[in-house]
Design a protein around this nucleic acid. Structure first.
Lengths: 234, 234, 234, 234
DNA sequence: CATGAATGAGAGTTCATTCAT
DNA sequence: GATGAATGAACTCTCATTCAT
């Protein structure tokens, strides 16, 4: 994942499957790439996007600027990898939250909360997600990467969608609700991060809880009205 | 009403009686400052944040870069003024929407819709609002200016707050709902902005209408059930 | 000539014709641009094209690299100006050589020799002319500038063309002969500059004289065969 | 032939008897060096000098950049080898042209035309010859290599020289004429290369034919008038 | 022999800002 | 008030080359 492209010769037939030598090498490469990624993350998180230059990232990773190009073909790609990694953590956190819960309602609550809490705890990860769209339009990344990232983001919301369907919503309605939930979370977090919410008093977490309760209410109401053979509460 | 945030070194105080000469001069200065502001807006809107350099702004205003420092002490202040002006337009649009409506429900609908539509139609104005917080921490602006801008933003939401109170909500509940409404709008628009919403299907406008309907429902329900305006479900 | 583009305001109506102030300014600007040009030339002549970086040129001119962009919008343009100036000197030298001569034959000899001697004495100027075509295709310069430079080069050869016509050649023949003359000169000089000619013995100047003599012979031969009312020898 | 100019550290000397093993190894090395050379040529021809970086060449050869240093001790040497190979092809083409012709005049015509056509068809080969002299001073190459390359170039012109002598010219005159011919060809091709010839109309091939005809005329004239081969007109 | 990683220098260019005039 | 020139730092990225493995 994110491994970089080199001129792979066909001559490689000499190495049958996966020489321990090659494996060690690759491992070390991965470690170092991870190191660069961490340096990038720390720079990005501490200095913000504008000040997190390649030079700064290289400095933190203990490299010269040019060395980074062994790992990432451009700054955009580095950020792409950063975002990718962030989305992996998000998905992991959501998945983790689900394993101890059972029942659609509990699933919804757990998944949505995990999502919210992830960005609440790591505001810079939210930045990351929006970085590549400064102003308006996606830029820099290859369309494929962009698509992949979008899909991983959607993955993180899938449990909510599934839970809502489990609670009796049809697909279209569930999609609408998930999108609205996502928007609500993003809005709350953006407001909080930008300090714009302080003026109002209520905390973002409170407001999230409130919205979640309303959503559950809506789901259950619908559940009662149209109790079509749903594996309810299982 | 946005003029005095610049480096005009107490020009007024120096001339005690405010000679017509001085008045004319100040007026001309204001006109030119406005010109610069328009140039900045056009640059920012067309090119986005990164490409809207001082040079470009100056070019569009018909000045050399150095000349802008007669009007704004730094690029940040220029953006501050731009944001201030944007918030004035927002307030004007909200106010405009109210004059033809009567009744709290209609007011809420009108004010919230005006708010939504303002940023829906002018996504760059939303950018502007978030620009100064890149990396999530307010930067550059003086605290006073920051406060002033926050207040103007709150002003634009006051009609919604008032309408909700008119519909029977107590102040705390209304504040909570307004904040949530604001967050929802921002979330929807950010998602739309960044293209992240496309993958879900429903349009931001639809989702806004839905949210607004739910809010009105909540307000009316509360109106009937608890004419004293008690928080429930939290 | 080569003066750079700025955002000229229409406000300039205040200056009636050419304020001494403005004139002084422009003069100073010209002087400094000339200084940059000289620095570029010296860098180019001493270090060759590849090593004559903007930094080096700036250093020699006593500037920081960015300062050069006040005078030339890009490195290519700087080289364009350098080439332009070189061609002016070439034309001047050719023109100078003509004023003391009379008669078509003498004109041809003088003009061609001046051309040859210019590049013989200043080999780097020949480089300059070929720089922008590394490999093969003109690059960098705007087509207009390229055309202008081509025209100035042709100007330097016009006296030869005129002399050949004066000696009785029709236009097509004269063009052919001038092109061949030009090619011969360029070939001789390139061989000399690249050290490739040393191995043969004869000096480039000798060979040029030989070619010139042959050309004059051809012209006179033609003159005798077709003595159509030519102002011969005037 | 051309192999030994690289960093192959006296491989041969180390193995006294030249084991079949060593022979095979050297052969393989030669093959791969040829492969690198072909990659370099293709890169150079397609991309030009500036873009044909070691990286690019290595990529085309299926190697990593560092690997090339097994075959060539520096980029300059690689270009030297490239030029060497180019001169071999030139010589081959000239030799090929001669085998079907008989008579000194035919030989001159054939050899000169082959020379001209070689570079006319492969302008990049001409570039190659001049590359190492950017800025007019030979650089990079060792003097011995430089001498070797010069000799090979002269070899390609020897048939012309011989033919001219066959036509009655003395050695000095023939040398002069060959040098002039060479210069003329180079000049025509450079002008064509750089687009400078377009402005005049006549094609380089026409002009070459013309020059060749004149040369033949001179040779024959001399042949008849002064069977002893005296310089005239100089 | 070949790799992958790294260096260190340097490329051209852009930027917000300053300041004498 | 405005200019034109200049700064100095920064930018991303590319290069030929080296070297442990």
């Amino acid at each position: 994942m994110m491994k970089c492209m080199t001129a792979t010769k066909e001559r490689a037939a000499a190495t049958p499957a996966d020489t321990p030598r090659a494996a060690r090498r690759r491992k070390r490469a991965d470690v170092r790439q991870e190191l660069v990624l961490q340096a990038a993350r720390s720079a990005f998180f501490e200095l913000g996007m504008e000040k997190a230059s390649l030079r700064e990232i290289a400095r933190r990773a203990g490299y010269t600027p040019g060395a980074l190009y062994s790992y990432f073909p451009s700054k955009e790609h580095l950020y792409g990898a950063l975002l990718g990694e962030s989305l992996e953590r998000l998905n992991a956190q959501v998945a983790q939250a689900l394993i101890t819960e059972s029942g659609h309602g509990a699933h919804l609550r757990a998944a949505a909360s995990a999502f919210f809490e992830f960005y609440h705890a790591n505001p810079r990860d939210l930045d990351l997600g929006f970085y590549l769209f400064q102003g308006m339009a996606p830029r820099g990344l290859t369309p494929e990467l962009n698509t992949r990232l979008n899909l991983r983001l959607r993955d993180a919301l899938l449990p909510c969608h599934a839970a809502l369907q489990g609670l009796g919503m049809d697909d279209a309605t569930a999609t609408r609700e998930v999108t609205a939930l996502f928007a609500h979370i993003v809005g709350l977090l953006v407001l909080r991060h930008t300090g714009r919410i302080r003026m109002f008093g209520p905390s973002s977490r409170e407001l999230f809880a409130l919205y979640l309760a309303q959503l559950l209410e809506r789901a259950h109401a619908r559940d009662e009205d149209h109790p079509a053979g749903v594996v309810h509460g299982a």
